[in-house]
Amino acid sequence: MSDVDSEVIRRYEVLNTIVQPDDVPFYGIPFPGFFLLNEDGTIVDKLFNRHLAHREGIEAILDSFAGRITPGENEPITSAAEDDGIRISAFLRGGGGVLRVGPRRRLVVRIEMPEGLHIYRDPVPVGMVATAITVDGPEAFRHEAVEAPPTHAFELPGVDEPLEVWEGTVDFVFPVYAASILGRAIREGAASIGVDVTVRYQACDDAQCFIPRTQTLRLDVPIGPGAMPNFGEMRGITGQTVEMDSMTHMKRLVERKQAD
């Protein structure tokens, strides 16, 4: 749908207020993002990005509706299990797992613990190890701060300080995106990049703790060119032809804004 006068953009309070009215033709653009509505039209979730070029993939929307993240069929995944029974997986969610400039993806680190075991959130008393996850990739691979799942309080006999723990299956989610120099790797013929996920943790039950572990998983992430909107002529599945030449549309947009 086309919101030429940005009326709906304003009513939903997503107008980019940094762009000033005299900045033709950019004034009137929204911050990119989405709202999710339930059946009666109430907003049940929303996600907006600071960066003008970042877009959420359809998977982020579907995952928000579902309330859980499920790896797609072709999305890269790697996992390992330790003798403490804890299994750690890392997968790149969205866009078939292909990293491109523009669409944001989610790097999900899933820790599955057997019943009775838990791991700790920082801070912990001296001598115990809090869970820490680091993600390292080439310069073109960028990530934002981790979105950690909720913890619950745990009392350990003999320890005065309150402890926060995770148990069961928990997902740590890193929003990720590609810098423009990803294009250089593509031009040089690279088909993927390596991303290392390192998880440091100590698993305990009510009576004892296992020795601290450090597990490093490598994800081989396919890369692809960014989406270019200059399609020229595009024929839809219903047979109609849509003219998608961006320069023509940009020219119209400028003329329309200048005429206001």
Partner: peptide, 26 residues
Amino acid sequence: TQRVIPTGEFHPGLSIGERAPDFELP
């Protein structure tokens, strides 16, 4: 200006729990 990235608190948009306003657009 269209490339300036907002800093600090960033919570654009109507709040979760609000009714989404109705509209008509082409």
